[in-house]
């Protein structure tokens, strides 16, 4: 999935957790790489987040075409959990402070 990495953060169409306190927010980003197959990335999004195929494909294409996709926004622990889950599937996923 060749792509571009230096792009502004795309609009986030993700499950957002309501923060009842002022806990810092984090985003989970999946980055493009040339080796993960597109149907596999779609499958992983469906499995990890329970998304519909359509939503999973939309995020997969965002990764492919824009170089990255923000797939989750939450407090630290949940965001870290999802990064671990995505990395178990060998996707290039990172955790970043929400801007």
């Amino acid at each position: 999935m060749p792509g571009i990495t230096e792009l502004p953060m795309p609009e986030v169409d993700v499950e957002s957790q309501t923060q009842s306190t002022r806990e810092p927010e984090f985003v989970v980003i999946v980055w493009d790489d040339p080796v993960n197959l597109m149907p596999y990335v779609t499958h992983v999004f469906q499995q990890v987040f329970g998304w519909s195929r359509e939503k999973a494909q939309r995020h997969m294409l965002e990764v492919h075409e824009q170089g990255r996709s923000v797939v989750f926004r939450s407090g630290f622990e949940k965001a870290e959990f999802y990064v671990h889950a995505l990395q178990k599937y060998s996707l290039t996923a990172t955790l970043e402070p929400a801007s």
Partner: peptide, 23 residues
């Protein structure tokens, strides 16, 4: 080793401690 954060070294260190060997 998979990086846990690209933009924050502090986060990277914090998360790697949790991740060590798990993958």
């Amino acid at each position: 080793r998979a990086r846990m954060s690209r933009n924050s070294e502090a986060l990277e260190e914090q998360c790697q401690a949790d991740l060590a060997g798990e993958l």
